[in-house]
Design a binder for these strands. Sequence first.
RNA 1: GGGGAUGUAGCUCAGGGGUAGAGCAACUGCCUUUUAAGCAGUGGGUCGGAGGUUCGAUUCCUCCCAUCCUCACCA
Length: 513
Amino acid sequence: MVNEQNELIKRRFEELEEIKKLGVNPYPHRYDITHKASELIKNFTDPKDETETEARKKDIVSIAGRISAIRRMGKATFCHIKDDTERIQLYLKKDEVGETPYAILKMLDIGDIIGVKGYVFRTKTGEISVHCVALELLTKSVFPLPVVKEEITESGEKIIHDAFADVELRYRQRYIDLIVNENVKGTFLSRTKIIKSIRGTLEKYGFLEVETPTLQSIYGGANARPFVTHHNALDIPLYLRISNELFLKRLIVGGFSRVFEFVKDFRNEGIDRTHNPEFTQVEWYQAYGDYYDSMKLFEEAVEQACIAVHGTTKIKYQDVELDLKAPWKRIKMVDAIKEKTGLDVLSMKKDDIILYMKQNSIEFDTKLSHSKGLVISSLFEALCEEDLVQPAFVIDHPIDTTPLCKPLREYTLAQLGEMKKDPEQVIFVERFEPYINKWEVGNAYTELNDPVLQRKLFEETHPMDDDFIRAIEVGMPPTTGVGMGVDRIVMLLTNSVNIRDVLLFPLMKPLDK
RNA sequence: GGGGAUGUAGCUCAGGGGUAGAGCAACUGCCUUUUAAGCAGUGGGUCGGAGGUUCGAUUCCUCCCAUCCUCACCA
């Protein structure tokens, strides 16, 4: 790490003092800008003749940005500045900007923020630039940035030299990463576009954006370990939400028919390429709809988000070509298993499925062996996920996989009663999981609204939430709900390999000494 | 948590049991259309941290820390 002893930093603090001695405030309050760099470059046309060239000199523009490169040539200086659009070259001559500004210019460094006034012209070597007549220091930078050089070849190709590439430093000092690595900003612009597009799709269908608690005294709605915190005044433990599902359903009970919320969820589990302890989901709930409605909306939301970023539904993720065009394939979990293995797990005994897995050395958690449904879903995960590259909805999971989903509509009440008694029978529920590039990118149900069954399933596998049960007892209309993993969608649409590349500030271990 | 890799100047990297190297950046000088500007010169390091082996460790060994990859856990 850099400390204040660092020679480069010490030098910059000295320069700061010299600038002050010249009577210049290195941190002024504001600056008037007339243009962005991209506008100046886009709007420039070459003058026809000498008279026009002269006339152009009266069109004074004003622009500000951070110095990204500087080339001093004695009494003239070229530098590049970057604003939030692009980089543009500045040409500064001592006899035009004045003595004091030029003295300051001599002390400027890469990273300093300046404002200039001048006219746009094209240099001998062809680069559109600003010929400056005034220079003002807007912010002195005292912490040196990595020096990244851009070379533009004759073919117009851009080569980056000495890129700031240390992954750890990039995440820990994201502000530097954003300044210096151009594509990083692009990823986060895309992220914003994607979220905006998804929001637009939901609003188009009349969904209302709402906010529910992050701090919850009972956590639920997903199967995950929570972060625990403490409220001092009330002296009670509180949990950071692992999901907002149970609150959004309360709102459906309350009479909102379509709601959605983008939320940070917090799950106290391992960190890897696709998992960060806090991550973003969008969940939406639609009264009077079922999971077929949700599938349609899900595929449309992703398709539209893709178009918003790429203008097409065809993308390339790493080496894989993906087409996100709706409609996506739908496949029942048991059919996926049959396609892959030829096994009809419904007619097989539970122990025979387990035997099959052992014989084929398929990893299996024996803690799950009490439930035929969990055995089937383990088999699916072990064998079938790897084939789910193009977008697909896997539908109809065993009931043991979730306590919040309604059994298939084809079962009669009498049948359900019988099936529950027989451990070789598996009840399936109206659930779907969308897969893209082998990743689960969401989870959705025809929501369970039978309060008796809901209470029973909570007793078996979920922290009891009496208030939620009461809401279901008050009566929730037939409803479908969806959770979409926003970070993974962003990863796919920005060709990012690690979830940290799509989070501005991913969790890093602190570097305390 | 297991396995593998990495950690050397502000940045990108090379090196290797005997007082540390390059390019860029910095500093001094020259240079008023340069562009990875150029030319000449100068400075800059607890070689991730702590122990150990050794006459001597940045190099070899052990442990620790951080990051990446991978497996496991986990939606």
